[in-house]
Design a protein around this nucleic acid. Structure first.
Lengths: 240, 240
DNA sequence: CAACGAGGTGCGGGTTTACGCAAGACGGCG
DNA sequence: CGCCGTCTTGCGTAAACCCGCACCTCGTTG
């Protein structure tokens, strides 16, 4: 068995290397990549079916790398190993995982034991292992309760990108009014009104901008999500 | 000599510990804190004058911790050790460093050698050591060329927080028109128009929101900066 | 099948933004 | 001192945004 490690930080990389060797005696080779792009290439060249992937990397983040890798070989086992459990990441990951793929999401703060267990479960037993903390988010976000609909999330991204209502309408194939409708739902759920109205009137917020900020502070959005959305937007713009 | 290490990640913490011991034979004790709050407390209790500080930590980030520490004892030597050189960080740091304080900013990607050199220069020689990459940013941002004025940066933060023009005017003691004036300058510098007007008219951007996004993508803003700005805003709101 | 709720439109109007134009205020400089 | 550049402010306007009210269209469900 060959295991590919894709990870920015050299310290974490060697730590992972050791953990993999210790947890998987059946693993004979470990290869390493220090960014997403190199990771994609190595995955292709080595046809490696077992990957440990960091999420935030400078040149090409883990989600994008995983997406192209899974596109080529959906049966690849991938363990995401991340510092954060931002809803933006969780959502990003669950959006790209192919049907029936074996994958995992473990936080870097997890114990050695937990990491090793996850490695074995995913790579050997082809099971899915999601860190409990992440799991909570996933249910809240993908279930409807207290979470955000896909359409709400979508429009959140659109205003975060700085599109006008009209542009959004064009992009998503909706009428102007529908866009504004969705915006209202979003404002509702993000509780933008509460923070706005408390202090008389002179402390008012610009709902649209405030919504984005609140989403950021709640980790619904993060840099990586913005970056991905931005490139998608550019592609759309180019395609007229 | 006592050295205090404030760092989230256990791997990096032990790495730092070893580096400190190796670089500073005159150091007899090394103490560690795993977040900003604990760091502040230890700095106070031990009166430690030599600190290595990570910038992004979950419970209390390095900039805030450093600010309170420097407020109590401005002669403290602090080496910031960070993964990123976001302009938001650089700006945040240079904003809080007291006159004549010895401090440094080294990237985690720097070599062992560089780290050790920085440790000696700052702690023993009381010199300032700024990573060259960071240095470039600093000059660009604090000098006027191609950089952002304080007032422009200020208003950027205000719209990023989601304030209305009127609220900003109240907060900063300006007239409505002046606020909008500054906004125009900001839009100019962020080059929001260029990206806006290229594709006919239906691809238009909401300038205000777009400016925030562009600033984020350019690392002028980041989560930490937003978070700090948000708590400042709340304080201001409470103080009516 | 009928009743119902969720989501998509159209209309209309009050507010906020973006910004050109132009009149002061202030500081530096020949 | 007078000229000039930068910053502030007021006025006015066109566009964008926020949103209540009302009407549709579906897929669900009793």
């Amino acid at each position: 068995m060959k295991v590919l490690i894709v990870e920015d930080d050299p310290l974490h990389r060697t730590y992972l290397h050791e953990a993999v060797v210790a947890a998987l005696p059946e693993c004979d080779t470990v290869i390493e990549a220090e960014n997403g792009l190199a990771g994609e290439k190595l995955a292709r060249d080595h046809k490696s079916a077992h990957i440990v992937m960091d999420l935030q990397m400078a040149t090409r983040n883990g989600i994008e790398a995983a997406r192209t890798i899974w596109k080529e070989r959906p049966e690849t086992h991938i363990l995401f190993w991340s510092n954060y459990s931002d809803e933006a990441y969780v959502r990003g990951v669950s959006r790209i995982v192919p049907d029936g793929a074996a994958y995992g999401y473990v936080l870097k703060s997890a114990s050695d034991e937990r990491l090793k267990l996850a490695l074995r479960s995913i790579f050997i037993e082809s099971q899915c292992v999601i860190d409990r903390e992440v799991r909570g988010l996933q249910q809240k976000s993908l279930g409807q309760t207290n979470g955000f609909t896909d359409s709400e999330y979508e429009i959140l991204i659109d205003i975060a990108l700085g599109l006008t209502d009209r542009a959004i309408a064009g992009r998503r194939g909706l009428s102007l009014r529908s866009v504004q409708n969705r915006l209202q739902h979003l404002y509702d759920k993000l509780d933008v009104y509460h923070t706005a109205g408390d202090a008389a009137d002179d402390g008012r917020f610009n709902l649209r901008a405030r919504a984005v900020t609140v989403a950021f502070l709640r980790k619904l959005l993060n840099y990586s999500a913005l970056e991905r959305a931005e490139t998608e937007l550019q592609e759309w713009l180019d395609g007229k």
